[in-house]
């Protein structure tokens, strides 16, 4: 370990180290964040949900978006996998279908950042408790 020699160096160090704790900090107050759920059942994984999830996690980190990405079980739309549910604070959840890496980025750029809806939204026909 190299020595930290000044207040500035400590601050820089902190910024480098923050990333690893970021998901813990965020999970401490999830209700104030955008919650993104990727369906990761067998059907989802087979259609490439894992790559989509990686892309989402990556983009959220790079664009510094106050969001937390979690995985969930099968939402029942096996025909439309991979599916991604986005719940913005104060909004009803929206489920996007046939999400690939490109669409995942669109969801963030258009829906999460600017509230623009995209094609391929599935009707919300369920309630979560």
């Amino acid at each position: 370990m190299t020595k930290i020699k000044s207040l500035d160096e400590l601050r820089k160090k902190k910024q480098q180290l923050e990333q690893n704790l970021e998901i813990r900090e965020k999970s401490d107050h999830p209700e104030s964040l955008v919650q993104i759920k990727v369906a990761m059942a067998t059907c989802g994984i087979a259609s490439g949900a894992r790559t989509v999830m990686n892309a989402l996690v990556e983009k959220i980190r790079n664009d510094k978006i106050p969001a937390v990405v979690t995985q969930t079980g099968c939402m029942g739309y096996c025909y439309a996998e991979p599916t991604v549910e986005v719940k913005k604070p104060g909004h009803d959840p929206v489920v996007f279908s046939y999400v690939d890496v490109k669409k995942a980025e669109e969801i963030i750029d258009k829906y999460i950042k600017n509230n623009e809806l995209l094609d391929g939204i599935l009707p919300a026909n369920y309630q979560t408790i």
Binding site: L10, N20, L21
Partner: peptide
């Protein structure tokens, strides 16, 4: 229950040693 106590980096990431740094500088 939040950080790994055996890893000082996690403490620093949570503003650890910032108070000391501020006080002494």
């Amino acid at each position: 229950g939040f950080i790994d106590p055996e890893n000082i980096d996690e403490y620093i990431a949570r503003d650890g040693y910032s108070a000391l740094a501020q006080v002494i500088t």
